[in-house]
Amino acid sequence: MHETDMTKALILTVKDWWESQPERPQISCIRLTVGEFTCVEPVSLQFAFEVQSRNTFLQGVRLAIDEIPLIAFCDRCQEEYRPEIGLRYACPQCESPMENIRSGRELKIEKIEYAVGV
């Protein structure tokens, strides 16, 4: 599954960051945003992360996924609407096709939370 590849990319990116930190901090949480209109299934991503982080510097780290809804903007109605994924994407008021996606395509590592001993 492609979540495996996405997780690989995730771990590599976080590792780059971690190795750039001289104190190699203890990471507690990685925050992702995942849009609803992507091919990524948060549950599969969680699972892949659990498997791939085992016995690495990320073992036990929490992966927090914020899901972002699909929101489109209809130019004709000058209004936002939420397409019903799987059923219909056109504007519910005027039937104009979905052209302008405002959110829902995100696949982002937002931030890393970590602790440093004092």
């Binding site: 960051w17 982002k108 590592i109 937002e110 890393i112 440093v116």
Partner: peptide, 17 residues
């Protein structure tokens, strides 16, 4: 004692691809 910090990354998962 531990202090908690945050680092903002804002990197797309598909960036390398």
């Amino acid at each position: 004692m531990h202090q908690t910090f945050e680092a903002g990354l804002g990197i797309n998962l598909l960036h390398a691809n």
